[in-house]
Design a binder for these strands. Structure first.
Length: 280
DNA sequence: AAAACCGCCTGTCGGC
DNA sequence: TGCCGACAGGCGGTTT
């Protein structure tokens, strides 16, 4: 599932492949993935535009096009966005929903079996996509400070793990990196967010940033679907400490990794390393 | 405002 | 062998 490190890896890997290229033609075979804007707008609005650059905000990719337009892409659960030098002889794989043909003959392909992703074309991403408007600061930017995080957590009575999935506070964090950051910070996922002591907020802040940096350095986590812009999987799955390791030995203390369902999602943690001692 | 829940989607896997 | 349910889960929507 693409989270911040995977989306950032896609961004970096695609940049040199598509920047400065012109979009000659668009093929949309699954209109369902077009959200927040009119599908017809994509076909007419994108053709002939140059790709000036690619930005990222949380888990969103923002393709800057000429004409003050932005192509917003979210990969959802199983979305892949990758470049092909030419059409594959065996045809495009199943669940290929969008193909952007470039002026070098290359193809930018969007494939998404679960169709949780979305694409839209807009002059104002923050107006078109509410999630961008309300999103918290980038966790790797200076604005994501200990004092900002302290104030944000103080307002929340929900469990820490639930709050870690809130993009208004932890932009770009998803289920994998939430669990990994909590493990690194030695914090129990069921702690009330507002109950953290100053030292614990500091640990969480450091842990989030360290986990994201390391995952980016390893080009993301590939468990089932994820590949970068070249179609290459990431390497961080080998370094996961708790996610997906239910019942396996904690890499730090050897006790079995625990599992609990929180906010409808699997949560993995070490009951020994991440104790609830300060639950209030 | 925040919290809790549901629906969307397909592929995979365990149980019978 | 095949059917069925559980599971994977980000996000937008609704309700409380």
């Amino acid at each position: 599932m693409p989270e911040l490190p995977e989306v950032e890896t896609v961004r970096r890997s695609l940049l040199s492949l598509v920047r400065g290229k012109r979009i000659m033609r668009v093929e949309l075979t699954e209109p369902r993935i077009i959200r927040h804007c009119d599908p017809a707008r994509i076909r007419t609005g994108v053709t002939g535009r140059l790709i000036l650059g690619i930005d990222r905000r949380g888990k969103f990719l923002l393709f800057q096009l000429t004409g003050e337009l932005t192509l917003v892409v979210h990969l959802g659960m199983s979305g892949k966005l990758y470049y092909l030098a030419a059409e594959p002889t065996a045809g495009f794989p199943k669940h290929t929903h969008a193909i952007f043909e470039l002026d070098d003959g290359g193809l930018l392909v969007y494939q998404d079996p679960r169709q949780f992703g979305r694409i839209c074309l807009t002059e104002s991403p923050e107006t078109a996509v509410a999630a961008l408007r309300s999103m918290g600061p980038e966790p790797l930017d200076r604005q994501f400070s200990v004092s900002w995080l302290t104030a944000a957590l103080a307002r929340r009575s929900a469990k820490l793990k639930t709050v870690m999935l809130d993009q208004k506070i932890f932009a770009g964090i998803g289920n994998i990196y939430a669990d990994e950051a909590l493990f690194r910070a030695r914090l129990h996922p069921e702690r009330a967010a507002a109950s953290l002591a100053p030292e614990e907020v500091k640990r969480l802040h450091r842990a989030v940033r360290a986990v994201l940096r390391r995952a980016i350095a390893n080009r993301g986590t590939s468990i089932s679907d994820y590949v970068d812009g070249h179609g290459v999987p990431g390497d961080f799955q080998a370094q996961l400490q708790v996610y997906g390791r239910r019942g396996e030995a904690c890499r730090r203390c050897g006790n079995p990794v625990q599992w609990v369902r929180l906010a409808g999602r699997s949560s993995f943690y070490c009951g020994c390393c991440q104790q609830e001692e300060n639950k209030r």
